[in-house]
Design a protein around this nucleic acid. Structure first.
Lengths: 130, 130
DNA sequence: TCTTGACCTTCCAGTTACTGGAAACATTAC
DNA sequence: GTAATGTTTCCAGTAACTGGAAGGTCAAGA
């Protein structure tokens, strides 16, 4: 499938998809006419990239995560260790999102619609300051 | 408190904190000697910025979120509407993180430690392709 | 008191991850 | 057939930092 189609299915702008090819993240086939030709597997990876980038993982982290599935030569112990450290990071992100969620819910619940409430919730949105 | 201290407490590099001042996100007091002087409230905001950026919110979104607490002139209906749309975004992010978590857990659980498993989980990490 | 080292200042240049636009070729729609 | 749309490459610009130089400040130890 063409890049426009892949863009629509993945949620990534065509520009970004080309950029990911430039930096070696995802290299699609080429059609006779020179157009990029994406498989469904490519689209899955693009969609994964779209999500992971939106969740605050860097391009290099995404490259590593993609490599977990693609690099057949990598030892499984390696895969496990990388995946485990990413899992910890994900746990932390989920917790932080829940806290942010609580704060915003509190804000929404305690606004009366006519004036801003005077509650000191900045402390709660910033989490525990160690 | 000095920038080094604020950096340690917030988890943000001093460089980044100065950059946030440059773009008008957070303007601290200045001591007699010209050093930046951060209050605890400033540190809370910095910590919030550290988290929100790490969770994939853009600087402009962070600016908006900070404004929810700071802009006394903003109507509460506005605050509610912005907060609600951010809440939806957070819900989505949490769901996506859970899915990513499931995939990685699956990978860790099904590796045998000596060789990479041959399971087609790319589809699951990329979520539903609409 | 002096000095040494850690910390702070500003400024400017470089990097990462896109993003916009031009010029040209391909495809599709009427 | 031609106009609109989609694709290509290339090059420049933006967002959000990040590193490094040149110099001022401060606290601790000889």
């Amino acid at each position: 499938m063409n890049i426009g189609n892949a863009s629509g299915k993945s949620g990534l702008p065509a520009k970004t998809i080309r950029y990911y090819e430039d930096i070696g993240l995802l290299k699609p086939e080429r059609s006779e006419n020179g157009y990029r030709d994406y498989s469904m597997s490519d689209v899955h990876k693009l969609r994964f990239l779209q999500r992971a980038r939106g969740l605050g993982f860097s391009v290099e982290e995404c490259r590593q995560l993609l490599a977990l599935y693609e690099d057949k030569s990598r030892a499984s112990a390696d895969v496990k260790s990388i995946a485990r450290s990413k899992l910890q990071e994900i746990d932390r992100k989920i917790i932080e999102l829940r806290e942010l969620q609580e704060t915003l819910k509190h804000l929404v619940a305690h606004c009366h619609g006519d004036q801003r409430p005077d509650c000191p919730i900045l402390e709660s949105i910033s989490g525990s300051v160690s």
